[in-house]
Computed example of a mutant assay.
Amino acid sequence: MERRTFLRATVVGGASAAFGGSLWHGAAYAAPAQPGTGPYGALGSPDANGIRLPAGFSSRVIARSGQTVSGTSYAWHSAPDGGACYADGAGWIYVSNSEINPSGGASAVKFSSTGAITGAYRILSGTRQNCAGGRTPWNTWLSCEEVDRGFVHETDPWGVNAAVQRPAMGRFKHEAAAADPVRKVIYLTEDETNGRFYRFVPTTWGDLSSGTLQVLVAGTATSGSYTWTTVPDPDGSPTTTRTQVSGSKSFNGGEGCHYADDKVWFTTKGDNRVWQLNLTSDTYELAYDDSLVTSGTAPLTGVDNVTGSSSGDLFVAEDGGTMEICLITPDDIVAPFLRIDGQSSSEITGPAFSPDGTRLYFSSQRGTTGSSSGGITYEVTGPFRA
């Protein structure tokens, strides 16, 4: 066992042995998820799109970078990244970031009630390396710039209202955002090797033009209690936001972020971890850590974007790894849900469910070519559990 693995096992092992139980059911410092049989069973052979899926599921290509989206006159953007879905009457909209620098931005695809594509268009232009982001309860898309002193841009998925820069949410290497309607805050991840985990407290919920940026303060262990401290200068210059508050907890490469049921989960790619904050007890712990898998090979590596289903399953996309979307169940089982074959130079991005939960959207950022101009956006349909 490597020293790094041993130390992490020692820190977590004592806590998990003492408490046990399921992360989702509120037990303190439960053991991180372990490999097992997922609720949908084994993956089948690759389909015509090169995607391995469980029985009963199927895939289709929605868009390809540089090519006109079917039934529209709009050419899809390069390097598709973070995404989200929005109800649109009986249909819905899927938005997707473009992680290129310069000229990143975001686009949207509109669907009818039957899933037919009825439109595609730009919703954000002139920004840089828009990686992940998050949906707000008032149906806007927060598109985050993954560059030094990057901005969060609030955008309209319908493309009617102009996008608005939100500097009060802090200037740093933004990754993802997740809205908490109970505490009326937005959680934010930072993609730095010594990044921090933040929350933005708007002056008025629903208006992100002003408010307070706070950073999580905690010890160095992988579980414990935490508090929030205000970042003195959210502008991040000359002192970066992540170094302004003594005692703020460092996270190795913050990526995806998801809120549900008084908990927030986020991933850190530098150490292949999924973290969970219990927002009612103000405690944090590991939901998954690839180096703490106790038997067999870790099924989830290269953790990146994350979303959740109505059943409480987390769906975690891989940046590299074996090009899988893995799920972590409320019973602390981690298993592959799908795998893309023949695209090992890419990464999976932007997982998001349609409003009715029957369709999962995501992208392969660089597709079969390994280039940002080769991105492919997919839809998977099937018997997702409620």
Rank of each mutant, 00 (worst) to 15 (best):
T127N: 06
V245P: 09
G320L: 11
T203N: 10
T127E: 10
D81P: 03
G104E: 07
C326F: 05
V274E: 12
N97W: 06
K269C: 03
H174G: 01
P32Y: 08
Y284A: 01
D313S: 14
V303H: 07
A335L: 05
N161E: 13
A90G: 10
S98A: 15
S291V: 12
V11M: 13
K110A: 15
S345W: 10
N49A: 08
S363A: 15
W141K: 01
S78M: 14
V201P: 02
T369W: 07
H77P: 03
Y288H: 03
Y284D: 00
N272L: 05
A178N: 09
L7C: 08
P351L: 09
C326R: 09
F197M: 11
A116H: 04
A168N: 01
K184S: 04
W92F: 15
W24L: 15
T203E: 01
V274K: 09
N194M: 14
A120W: 06
A15C: 05
S45A: 15
R196F: 01
S346Y: 09
F6E: 13
G38A: 02
G357N: 08
E324D: 12
V12P: 05
L216W: 08
G89V: 12
Y361C: 14
C85F: 07
T10R: 09
L338T: 12
E318Y: 02
V147E: 10
G91M: 06
G375R: 11
W228T: 02
G256C: 05
V109R: 04
E145M: 11
L23I: 14
F337E: 12
V316D: 01
P167F: 00
G150R: 06
T268V: 15
T243L: 15
L213D: 00
K269M: 10
E379T: 06
Y121E: 06
W228Y: 10
V182N: 09
G82Q: 11
G44Q: 09
H258C: 14
F172G: 01
S250P: 03
T349G: 07
C257V: 14
A179D: 08
G219H: 06
C131L: 14
Y378K: 10
L53H: 04
E2W: 06
G206Q: 05
G21N: 12
T155F: 00
G247N: 10
F111W: 02
V147C: 11
A30P: 14
W265C: 03
L23M: 11
A84L: 10
L53M: 04
G224M: 05
A33Y: 11
P232M: 00
P181R: 00
D289C: 15
A33K: 07
G50Q: 08
D156G: 09
P32K: 08
S309W: 08
W138T: 02
I325S: 03
N252M: 14
P32L: 06
I123H: 01
Y40S: 03
G308H: 13
